[in-house]
Simulated scan of single mutants.
Amino acid sequence: MLEDTKEIADFHAHVYYDRQSREVAARVREELNTKFDVRLGRWHDNPIGPHPKPMYQVAFLPEQFGAIVSWLMLHRQGLDILVHPTTGNDVADHTNHALWLGDKLELNIEFLRAIKTT
């Protein structure tokens, strides 16, 4: 791992969907699970935390970043996806360090700031 990225514990991809695209999201999820060694989070059919739409999370290791993000770029099937590192600074991870595939959604960053101060 590069010296200046050693503080990245892992990456999260948040795959957003709605009622009409849930089946598409399920196919993307199954393919990710089949093709890669990832940790799949639960389905959240309602907005949760800073996330403005239903989503599920996919966690993966830094050395998988190139393969997984490249695959998502080509196979996201129109879904919006937030990719961010886990460094211990949730606000920066979801803003300054974030990568978006598709549309950039408006996250509730105040939610993350409130967690940080409690």
Rank of each mutant, 00 (worst) to 15 (best):
104 K>A: 05
44 H>P: 04
94 H>P: 02
114 A>C: 03
73 M>K: 11
2 L>C: 10
114 A>P: 01
47 P>W: 11
67 A>K: 14
19 R>T: 11
116 K>D: 09
20 Q>D: 08
118 T>I: 09
35 K>S: 15
94 H>R: 05
114 A>E: 12
11 F>N: 04
8 I>S: 12
72 L>G: 08
62 P>Y: 01
40 L>P: 07
19 R>D: 14
73 M>P: 02
45 D>W: 03
20 Q>E: 10
3 E>N: 13
115 I>E: 00
16 Y>D: 08
60 F>Y: 11
73 M>D: 09
86 T>S: 04
49 G>Q: 03
68 I>N: 01
42 R>F: 13
66 G>N: 13
99 L>P: 01
101 L>N: 03
65 F>D: 00
80 D>Q: 06
2 L>K: 15
33 N>T: 09
60 F>W: 05
55 M>R: 02
114 A>H: 10
57 Q>Y: 07
88 G>H: 04
19 R>I: 10
62 P>I: 00
9 A>D: 10
39 R>E: 12
100 W>Q: 09
113 R>P: 07
111 F>K: 03
90 D>Y: 03
7 E>Q: 13
44 H>V: 10
65 F>S: 01
81 I>Y: 06
6 K>L: 15
87 T>L: 03
78 G>S: 06
91 V>E: 05
71 W>S: 02
99 L>Q: 00
72 L>I: 10
12 H>K: 04
7 E>W: 10
49 G>S: 13
9 A>S: 14
13 A>F: 02
62 P>T: 05
103 D>I: 06
41 G>S: 09
50 P>D: 00
109 I>D: 03
71 W>G: 01
102 G>R: 07
83 V>P: 00
104 K>E: 14
23 E>S: 12
11 F>K: 05
3 E>M: 13
60 F>D: 02
109 I>L: 04
8 I>M: 11
87 T>G: 10
37 D>A: 15
63 E>S: 13
111 F>I: 04
17 Y>V: 01
38 V>E: 11
66 G>H: 12
112 L>S: 04
81 I>P: 00
118 T>G: 09
56 Y>P: 04
108 N>G: 00
53 K>S: 12
117 T>D: 02
100 W>G: 02
75 H>V: 08
88 G>Q: 05
73 M>L: 13
68 I>H: 00
81 I>Q: 06
110 E>H: 07
14 H>T: 07
71 W>P: 05
42 R>D: 14
117 T>L: 08
77 Q>N: 15
49 G>E: 08
102 G>W: 02
95 T>K: 00
99 L>T: 02
7 E>C: 07
2 L>R: 14
10 D>Q: 08
23 E>K: 06
112 L>R: 04
114 A>Y: 06
18 D>H: 09
25 A>L: 06
25 A>D: 02
38 V>C: 09
56 Y>T: 07
79 L>K: 05
11 F>G: 07
28 V>A: 03
53 K>G: 07
66 G>M: 10
65 F>Y: 15
21 S>N: 00
73 M>S: 11
43 W>T: 09
31 E>M: 12
56 Y>F: 15
3 E>Q: 14
87 T>K: 08
55 M>F: 11
44 H>R: 15
113 R>I: 01
96 N>A: 15
100 W>F: 05
94 H>I: 00
73 M>W: 07
117 T>E: 03
2 L>Y: 14
108 N>I: 00
108 N>Q: 07
43 W>H: 13
